[in-house]
Structure formats: C-alpha cells, structure tokens
Nucleic acid binder design. Structure first.
Length: 429
RNA sequence: GUGGGUGUAGCUCAGUUGGUUAGAGCGUCAGGUUGUGGUCCUGAAAGUCGCGGGUUCAAGUCCCGUCACUCACCCCA
C-alpha cells in the first residue's frame, strides 16, 4: 500500500469497476422482480432522529446502544445514521396517513454501524429491504418469503438455506424467557461465560451460542414454541403450510434467534456456507411498531448485498464479464482524421451506438491496443487514405475481417440491429 | 470494546543463519511492423521493504512502539 490517505475510512469501501458491474446487475434484477410482486421503491434519508431507531429497534439493543453513528447537529438535534432500513420506512408510512398503511415498499441503500469490521461485516454496507405493511396474516409472510427466494435465485445464487421460527406474541416473551431459564438452570454452571451473562439478560441468545458445550445443552431444550401461546404456534404452522404449497423450501429451526426487539410471530434467516463466520445473507420477520398513536404491522426482510456479492463471486461469477464495452472504437491517424472522428463519435452516440476513442493522439498501435483492451466489437480506422477517399475501414475485432466503406454504408452497418453489441451476450473465454 | 494474523513495485508474491547497487510473474508504456489489436520477442518506467525508534560495523531480515489491513469474539445483514 502506498499512502493510507488514499484509502476510504475503516470499514467502508469504494464500489468501483469491475465489482460495480455486479452491483448494477443486482439492482436491475431486483427492480424487475419487485415490480412483478407489486412492490414500489421508497428512498428515505440516511439520517433520522435518533429516537426513531431507539423506539423501533429497542433502546437496549446493541445496535442502538453501541453501534450507531450518532451526533448532535447545529440545531441541537440528536441524529443518527441509519443502522437498518425498517425504522425509516415505518416512520414514512406512519406519516403518510391511512391510505399508505397498506404499503408494499422496498429500498436499496447504505446502512451504517460502528462495529469492528471483519469478513462480511462493514461499517457502511448495503441492504435490499422489503416491507409488506398492513396485512397481519400468514399469507403476507409467505408472500414475502417467496419473493425473497425468487430474488435470490434470479440473482443466480445457489445453495442458500432458509430457516424459519417464531418469536411469538409480545406477551409470550416473558413466558419464553422464564421457561428457558427454568430449563437451563440445572446446567447453568456448564454454560460459557457469555451464556451465563445471557441467562440473565436474554436467555434466547443461548440457543445460538457457538460454544460446543452450550450447543449440547441447547440441543436438549424443548423448542421455544412450547412456551408460547396456541395463537403463535398456529400462526407459524400456517406460514409453513403456505410455503409448502408455494414450493418454497424452508426448514423450521426452533433455535433460530433474531435480535431486534420489534419482531413478533414469524422470523427467518437465510444463510450460505462459505461466507465465513458471518454467514447470514438475510434476516427477516414480522413486526409491530408504534409511532405516535399508530401501530404499524408489517413483515419484511433485509439482505446484506456485500454478502450476496461475496457468495456470487465465490460461486465463480466474474463481475468483469458483466461490463458493457463500447461497440466501436474510433482510430485516427493525423490531426484532420482525429478531428473528423470526434464529430463522427458524437454522431454515432446520438444514434445509439456506444463508442470511444483515444483522446491523446497516440500511435495507431497504441490505439488498437486500447480498442482491444476495451473489448470493442468494432474498430473504425481513418487515416490519410480514407480522408482522401472519403471512406472508413471497419474492422471486426473478433475475426479480424476489415472492409472499406463509405459514410452511408458505415452508418447503415453500425446502426442496424445485428451489428450492435447486445450488453447481455458477451463473449466468454 | 477484546484477542490472533499480516504489512516488500499498480496486482500476486520471493527474499536463505542480519552482509555490497532489493528480485520474479502479471499488468503498464515503448520498440520489433514509419497504417492495424489479441500470440511471440526485446527493452523501459515503477519500491523512503507501512511509519517511528532501538540493537549492530551492517537491518527488508532482530527488538519495542505505532498505524493500516485482515480474521475471530460480543452483536448483527
């Protein structure tokens, strides 16, 4: 590394070619699929009043307590960069009146958490989130989960695993915590240090401890649904049977835990092997959030796009293969040809042909190399001979075949359908 | 916040028990073809060996500190 000052700050990255081609592809596919499910995009600010997050995520959550970028602005307002997307969307919906309470919305954008970075974890990261608001019934949960599976396979992702559980109703929580504590008490001194702390604070978290001894103990616990109301159990069963009918493969995992406070009923997670320790691609669930005198009920998920990118490239997808090279590279010899080519280039672009040329007046060989490196499909050569004759050499870079054409012929060839590069069918090798 | 690993050319890395002008491959640029890319050949540019201090006749190599990157824990996408 040269000077550290050229680097973005810790945990944040420039999204640049070639990786950016994959980001663009993901976003295009996403918008297409979400439109099919009749979801609309919403773009909320990346900053909110800190209270928005405290109220919706729970002000005892780690995300709120120690991971937010919070500050006081010049007006004395307590603001934070958003650590997740749901709170802002719900704030928006709550403020938009009755009609918007049936909102079906999605967002794509950066989120910020002040954590120590590691594989799959960044301080600025990007999420695709979907919120289906105002239909408090299992069909809404199943629809969103089906949508999520659809998006993942449309991106070309393989070998992901969906696991489902229920958080129960708010009034179930105390019973679950008490029930787990009672069941764990005999083994309390065999739990790891973290889990002994969790026993007091949040016994649910013991279920997904990575420590082997804790896992053994957790394996023998009754499923959390045992401590829940019949309503919670029925809701979960209905979601699962709907997913079976939609042929969405999910696994029920009674040990699955989701951290944010706002979840009720269904919670789920999608993981992918080969992401390292942070193997969750996505997490979702049903929630009830109170803003002012309104309670907004919804179901949704957030996907970590950096992790998706890691999984896709790990599958062998080369982001560079998604680049959109220029169809034509213009090559000039001499100042007059250079000047004419600038005009021709603009004219081609106005007619829909992507093209480029070397602007530094380098040697023909250097220009050819540049055209080749840019992966241009064609090269148009213009030198003294062509300037005299009023012609152009059109060279096909794939087979090396070169033809001499006049202006009408050239335009015809380059603007007709067959000779234009289709961005989605690149050559492979 | 806690712990481990790593910092040598644009990239990937080599550098022997400390020993003269720090190397390779890829990439870049140029030439071999004064009008032609992708292959081949030749050459060139490019490194304050992360930074600071220390030990030593001598430090890329050893010691200390520091910064950065990285992996893991807590927690989470």
């Amino acid at each position: 590394m040269t000077s550290e000052s050229f680097q973005p700050i810790k945990g944040m990255a420039d999204l640049a070619p070639p990786a950016i081609y994959l980001w663009q592809r993901l976003e295009e596919t996403t918008r297409d699929i979400l439109a099919r499910y009749a979801f609309d995009e919403v773009r909320t600010p990346v900053m909110e009043r800190t209270a928005v997050f405290k109220r919706s995520l729970g002000d005892t959550t780690d995300v709120v307590q120690k991971e937010m970028y919070s500050f006081t602005d010049r007006g004395g307002r307590d603001l934070s960069l958003r650590p997740e997307g749901t709170a802002g969307v719900i704030r928006h919906v709550a403020g938009s009146g009755q009609a918007a309470q049936d909102a079906r919305l999605y967002y794509i954008g950066p989120m910020f958490r002040s954590e120590r970075p590691q594989a799959g974890r960044y301080r600025q990261f990007h999420q695709l989130g979907v919120e289906s608001i105002g239909a408090p019934c299992p069909a809404a949960d199943a629809e969103v989960i089906a949508l999520q599976a659809h998006v993942l396979s449309a991106w070309g992702l393989k070998d992901f695993r969906m696991e489902l559980n229920t958080r129960g109703l708010p009034e179930d929580r105390q019973r679950v915590a008490d029930g787990l504590r009672a069941a764990l008490e005999p083994d309390l001194d065999r739990l790891c240090e973290d889990c002994r702390r969790r026993y007091a604070q949040n016994p649910l978290r013991i279920l997904d401890c990575k420590n082997a001894a804790c896992r053994d103990i957790a394996d023998r616990l009754p499923p959390v649904t045992e401590f829940m109301s019949a309503e919670a159990r029925t809701y979960l069963k209905e979601v699962i049977s709907l997913l079976e009918r939609l042929e969405i493969p999910v696994t029920e995992n009674p040990r699955l835990v989701r951290g944010l406070d706002y979840y009720v009923h269904t919670v789920w997670e999608i993981t992918h092997a080969g992401l390292g320790s942070q193997d969750a691609l996505s997490g979702g669930g049903r929630y009830a959030l109170t803003f002012g005198n309104q309670t907004i009920e919804g179901v949704g998920f957030a996907m970590g796009l950096e992790r998706i990118i890691t999984a896709l490239t790990g599958q062998g997808l080369d982001p560079g293969s998604l680049a959109k090279p220029p169809s034509v590279w213009l090559i000039s010899q001499g100042a007059a040809a250079f000047d004419e080519n600038l005009v021709l280039m603009q004219s081609l672009r106005l007619r829909g042909v992507s093209c480029a040329m070397d602007l530094r007046g380098r040697s023909m060989k250097a220009q050819m190399r540049a055209a080749n490196r840019a992966n241009s499909r064609y090269v148009v050569i213009r030198g003294d001979h062509e300037m005299e004759q009023g012609t152009f050499q059109l060279k096909n870079m794939a087979d090396g075949v070169q033809e001499e054409l006049d202006m009408p012929e050239l335009m015809q060839r380059l603007t007709s359908g067959t000779d234009r590069v289709c961005p989605d069918t690149e050559e492979e090798e």
